[in-house]
């Protein structure tokens, strides 16, 4: 980034109970963006061109994961931003919020094992024809950490068919070789779905954490290209 050039501004919304907000802010800065922390009570996105809804346990996961945050004042601005084509990335709890506000289809159930799962998983990239995914290649396998208890994506059969036929699946859980298999699915999510995009392709939700993998020192750089795509879309 040359001196004087304006960096792309990316809002990271902080809810009470968010715990991946600092990683998200750091990841945006690591790829050359300007990270802007935005408190959930705020009503505007401070001229940011993209938004991250970070992971954590907003409102202590009371009622349902993401359900209370979905009604925070900032979510009206996030919805407006999304409806105008602005880029939104929801990670983990942020993905749960996107489902709760209806920007993405389906809902999260408790993991099949009933356990909180905190470990690395492999993801297969299903689409790259969107701004938010264009830094990846189809079939590419990413290794990213998950850390959640409610990541078991569910929808009724009609919605599942729509999601599949409409190309809404961004990522599926797979093995190290890129094979989507039941035993590579950590939480029981239907169709091995780990990440979804909306019809316009500007809203992406995913359970794995790309923001935790932007430096070799922190275990790898497999999340870096995704964060860069978001910054470039801002």
């Amino acid at each position: 980034m040359t001196d004087g050039a304006r960096r792309s501004r990316v809002a990271v919304v902080i809810f009470p109970g968010s715990n991946c907000d600092r990683d998200a802010l750091g990841a945006v800065e690591a790829v050359g963006g300007e990270a802007v922390p935005v408190w959930h009570q705020s009503r505007d996105l401070q001229r940011c061109g993209a938004v991250i809804l970070p992971g954590g346990f907003s409102y202590g996961d009371y009622l349902r994961a993401g359900a209370m945050a979905a009604h925070s004042p900032i979510m009206k601005a996030v919805r407006r931003h999304a409806e105008q084509g602005g880029a939104v990335l929801g990670i983990c709890n942020g993905f749960q919020m996107l489902l709760e506000v209806g920007l993405l289809p389906g809902a999260m159930l408790m993991n099949r094992s009933l356990r909180f799962i905190c470990r690395d998983v492999f993801l297969r990239v299903e689409r790259t024809d969107l701004a938010l995914l264009r830094t990846l290649s189809v079939g590419q396998v990413l290794r990213l950490p998950i850390a959640h208890k409610e990541g078991n994506w569910f929808a009724d059969p009609a919605v599942v068919r729509e999601v599949e036929s409409g190309g809404a699946v961004a990522f599926r859980y797979c093995d190290a070789g890129g094979q989507v298999r039941p035993d590579a699915n950590p939480n029981g999510a239907l169709q091995g779905i780990a990440g979804l995009v909306n019809r316009d392709g500007n809203v992406l939700g995913m359970m794995p954490h790309p923001e935790r993998r932007v430096a070799r020192l922190l275990g790898g750089e497999d999340g870096r290209a995704l964060v860069r795509a978001l910054v470039e879309a801002a």
């Binding site: 009622l63 359900a67 009604h71 709760e100 809902a107 569910f154 009724d156 919605v159």
Partner: peptide, 8 residues
């Protein structure tokens, strides 16, 4: 609006 999620 809030208490139940109609999807599940």
């Amino acid at each position: 609006e809030l208490l139940a999620n109609p999807v599940i």
